[in-house]
Design a binder for these strands. Sequence first.
DNA 1: CTGTTAGCGCCTTCAT
DNA 2: ATGAAGGCGCTAACAG
Lengths: 346, 346
Amino acid sequence: MKKTTIYDIAKKLNLSAATVSRSLNNHPRISSKTKKEVLRIAQELHYEQNHLAKALQSGKSFIVGVIVPRIDNNFLSSVIRGIEDKLKDFDYHVIICQTHEDEEKEIENINTLLNIQVDGFLLSTCLTSIKHSELLDKIIKKNIPLVYFDRKMEIEGASSVIIDDFKGAYLATMRLIDNGATRIAHFSGNREIQIYNDRLNGYLQALNDAGLCVNLDYVIQVKSSLDDGVEAMDKLFNLEFPPDALFSSSDFAAFGAIQYLKSKNINIPEDFLVFGFGNENFTKFDELSISSVNQFPLEMGRITAEVFLDIISKSTIKNKVVKNIVLEPELIERKSSLKVFQFSGA
Amino acid sequence: MKKTTIYDIAKKLNLSAATVSRSLNNHPRISSKTKKEVLRIAQELHYEQNHLAKALQSGKSFIVGVIVPRIDNNFLSSVIRGIEDKLKDFDYHVIICQTHEDEEKEIENINTLLNIQVDGFLLSTCLTSIKHSELLDKIIKKNIPLVYFDRKMEIEGASSVIIDDFKGAYLATMRLIDNGATRIAHFSGNREIQIYNDRLNGYLQALNDAGLCVNLDYVIQVKSSLDDGVEAMDKLFNLEFPPDALFSSSDFAAFGAIQYLKSKNINIPEDFLVFGFGNENFTKFDELSISSVNQFPLEMGRITAEVFLDIISKSTIKNKVVKNIVLEPELIERKSSLKVFQFSGA
DNA sequence: CTGTTAGCGCCTTCAT
DNA sequence: ATGAAGGCGCTAACAG
């Protein structure tokens, strides 16, 4: 059986397709009698709007493209959920693309989404070099809303929703210091990516403010993976003076670090303090109990979607809405960074 | 600047839009000279095909909908990656929806995807009751390819790509028995979902074949989460005769079980053997080293996509292609299920 | 309040 | 080998 269109229901009611269309869209100056009839017949005939036709006609696809490094972690999948939850009330659909931290793949994804004419880009980017600014400019030029979340780039005309990574890092490091650490190592990410650079700077600032000297041997760049955490920890413990604490910009790497420490029978938090970042699901489990920084992923997703909707609805050709939102991080302290009481006789 | 269409390039070349369209689609009876010119001008004008128009015209959206319980685990995100990798070579795009194990949400997702006229459904379903068969029938009636992966339902006309869950469970349980376990507990999932039922049956069959008696107190239904694993383990150890091994249909729950055991100073594998299912990333780490069943997610995704492409290309109105593929599981044995040698003087 | 017309961009008969 | 015409389903502009 053929799909029913507005023409079918127009014919049945001796109306024009335009009137049917208007009725369906609840146009103000259509008699409510007509509207009711149209609605009735529409149901009767199991009418369903053809989004494709509407999209072609309106120039909008009602699809937004979400590009992330990967989806198999709690943080990003929660952000995505936040985005979806918000957007579904506005009839937008979401296409998710993964870059696997590969810049080429991200370019490819952007082009694909450009191709299917998404109405907006929501990006947690892994792009670093400015050689890609051309592509991003294309998005801006085409007036497609571009909202970064978590990981942004500085692009004229792009919006962003991030947390204050510097602050999160600063506070986390400070907690380690407060709790007695003096030789704090740091797992950094790719420093061309702003969040990792910010976290590094927060860490450095905290050391500085506490009057601790910075040992660059303690700063190691890792990928957000357990393997890298293990390996990096091994490096640190082959130094002449190994650290006594770790602030990791990745929970996964922190997990790896803890694996390593346990294998060496180094006790946490008695002998070594650990603070992670991201508040991944596994951090809260007893055996790990990793202190971490909460980035409020659901909220971040929701707000990212809201910024997009704002741009869509309020932007004019003359006046482009651009929002840059910074969320507050929250420290979640678990066993791994607990203060160890020293019974110094006094 | 306006988007360039085939008309623009037709005008520039004094050709008809039809010829341009044919050239772009590499139609056989267009002179190669014309084709070349069209291609040249197309590039010059930065022509990009309007997918929406093509979709409207062809009745195809070039989008396939993927519905999964959740994306934040290794198995499903890898399957999705496999799907994407395969499909992108055929110009199909993927929309991912999460159900969070909520049947209502799955229905909602299916309706949404139906609405945007996806060209196919790739489902890892959480639907159990047959009350939904109506909706699924709608998909079949509309002749939209429906391919289940991992979790299937028995629907006339639907295809599926799954692993042999029964066999995986049977073999895993058998290994535990071979390695000395006699009181093997099982974490089951929702048994209305076929994979969990199959795994349960594999477990039961193995016990039976080994001449071990079944103790239903040892079979506990859990969600695929650490919390549930901890809780279930607590239940088991409050039994008069606690088990000496666990076959869990979820790695996450197995992880939880191990957390519990460690907190009780029960050593693995000396005092207790564990076998999981899914080969999640974390299973391979030293502290855990959980034996598990590999489901070859990348391959499963690829094959699922291939089945879809097969259906698309080979199905006729008379002859509907239906494929049901069962992959072989692979046992991955790690420390958690190792045989413990008993020095029985003999 | 409703009808007519036209067009979004593409492809596909049917001609030539 | 190419052109002309029509239509996919919908909405917006212009009438009345």
